[in-house]
Design a protein around this nucleic acid. Structure first.
Length: 499
RNA sequence: GGUCCUGUGGCCGAGUGGCUAGGCAGAGCUCUGCAAAAGCUUCUACAGCGGUUCGAAUCCGCUCGGGACCUCCA
């Protein structure tokens, strides 16, 4: 069963094939680093990290390009954009690159915490001003853009007229009709330079107070938001590439504009599979700056936010995201996150136990169970191939948890499943838990702490043999107060978990 | 207003015609010095009303509710 993905362009699940056999080019819209990343940002990067890892698992060599938008209108709270023309010393003024650096660092930190792999290339908009200018010149030369007061706008109506005939109308991705849009788009300010309200900026003339500016054939200014992705995707992935990902909210106008720009320049539609993740909501409403309901990732990890009952581990967030299909909305809530926290803990502990099991029996004593385990395992790939249904894979994993725990606790006979089935169980769980889902829980504390806890465990064991429960309870209670839970296993061993 | 999506049990969610998804929470039991963990069992569903069908959470219609995009946005 081959990999199928939902293509926003055709609104259907389609079998995935790459342009160049064995290789995949994937572009994902990265963040605008004018502020801190929030919970909503975690979703696309976790989603496409899973896709990146899964494609590699399928044997593809993937070039994963994810940009950093570091050009545009940047301000810092309490600081005025007029800094640029004020008489203040350079080091007193707002330096946009300083902001960009700060938030880029924070973003990278959060991505690593969430268990995401770094992309193959992480190009910045500011590092590709030249490429963007070249692309804009090309669009002007072809007659699909015009210059007005030092700004350049894309002529959407002309594009639509010409490319509709080729089956590539403007709006093809988001299912919009240009004529209808022109009637319904509301009036916005500063639109007088545009010939048509659907036109969008390729290059913007920078007013004197604008702090980010570059020389261009049209004067000092800065690139329009959409052109960077077209320029960088073309440069690193070619005129046509396999997958373009991003949040659903980018479908229009951002991705629509990308298609238009690239199609004019390269005479081919740029992307074969458009993939969009749905939003994370809070009380049913999209999390976003304009709604004033964001929970930043730093706040989520620290618990310092009025809406948070407690801090949440980055892996809990990752697990929370994977429990839902990426095209459904996911509603934030303390209860839901707490549920994920406990679920992940249970899954992880069973996974750790699984690694310790061994078997030498060739034939399964419980054939039915053996077959059930194999069926559940085989479905992992089936579910992933069906548009990355991580939620179903996790559901199967949870059905395997009682099997693992049962064998450990001897509720299930050690020879119930065959050694080959056990081996498959171990391998496949490792592949999925660690390599594809990347749900690694590091044991906090390290070797020294482990040694100390082990010492206390041994003392407690001795106390319990002597029926000195006062001492044994003291050790357990006081460790619990420090966040270390001891568990007396059936076989007399004592295991522990650290919060 | 236009386009589109959506409404599943206390919470989060999978599921698109027939076979109890799953997690968390709740209840009971087993194990245990006690606890925790684990195991077993168990209670809450498919917004409402019609229709299609042998059969619908799943398809169609209407009603009501929620949301996204149309402006920066993951």
């Amino acid at each position: 069963m081959p990999l199928k993905v939902y293509n926003s362009l055709t609104r259907k699940k389609e079998e995935f094939t790459s342009i160049t056999p064995g290789h995949v080019g994937m572009y994902v819209c990265g963040p605008t680093v004018s502020g801190e990343s929030h919970l909503g940002h975690a979703r696309p990067y976790v989603t496409f990290d899973i896709l990146y890892r899964y494609l590699q698992h399928l044997g593809y060599k993937v070039r994963y390009v994810r940009n950093i938008t570091d050009a545009g209108h940047f301000e810092e709270e309490g600081r005025e954009a007029e800094d640029k023309i004020s008489k203040k010393a350079v080091v007193e003024k707002l330096e946009p690159m300083e902001l960009v650096q700060k938030y880029t660092n924070l973003y990278h930190w959060a991505m690593h915490k969430l268990g995401n792999l770094d992309p193959s290339i992480e190009p910045t908009a500011t590092g590709h001003i030249v490429e963007q200018i070249v692309m804009i010149e090309k669009i002007i030369a072809d007659g699909y853009a015009y210059v007005a007061n030092g700004s350049v706008y894309f002529d959407v109506e002309k594009y639509n007229k010409f490319f509709s005939a080729k089956g590539l109308p403007y709006g093809m991705l988001s299912g919009r009709n240009l004529e209808e849009m022109l009637e319904t788009t509301r009036e916005l300010e500063n639109q007088d330079e545009k010939r048509n309200k659907a036109d969008f900026a390729l290059w913007k003339n920078a007013p004197p107070e604008h702090i980010m500016r570059w020389q261009s054939p049209w004067g000092e200014g800065f690139p329009g938001w959409h052109i960077e992705c077209s320029a960088m995707a073309t440069k690193y992935l070619g005129e046509q590439f396999d997958i373009h990902g991003g949040g659903m909210d980018l479908q229009f106008p951002h991705h629509e504009c990308e298609i238009a720009q690239s199609t004019v320049c390269n005479h081919v539609t740029p992307v074969r599979y458009w993939m969009h993740n749905n939003m994370i909501t809070i009380n049913g409403r999209k999390m976003g700056k304009s709604y004033n309901n964001v929970i930043k990732l730093t706040e989520l990890f620290s618990g310092e936010h009025p809406l948070l009952a407690q801090p949440f581990h980055p892996m809990t967030i990752r697990f929370f995201i994977l429990q839902t299909h990426y095209r459904s909305t996911l509603d934030f809530g303390n209860e839901a996150l707490q549920g994920s926290e406990k679920g992940l803990k249970r899954l992880w502990e069973a996974y750790e136990q699984l690694g310790k099991l061994s078997s030498s029996n060739e034939v399964a004593a419980d054939k039915e169970l053996d077959e059930k385990v194999l069926k559940l395992l085989n479905e992992f790939d089936e579910f992933m191939n069906d548009d990355l249904n991580t939620a179903k894979v996790l559901a199967n994993m949870f059905e395997l948890v009682p099997v693992v725990n049962g064998i450990k606790d001897k509720h299930i006979a050690a020879d119930a499943i065959s050694s080959s089935t056990l081996k498959q169980l171990q391998q496949k769980m490792k592949l999925y838990v660690e390599d594809i889902f990347s749900l690694k829980m590091e044991k906090a504390g390290g070797d020294k702490l482990e040694g100390i806890i082990q010492l206390l465990i041994n003392i407690r064991k001795e106390a319990r043999t002597k029926k000195d429960f006062a001492t044994s309870d003291k050790i357990r209670n006081e460790l619990a107060a420090l966040g270390v839970q001891l568990k007396d296993e059936k076989d007399g061993n004592i295991s522990y978990t650290i919060d």
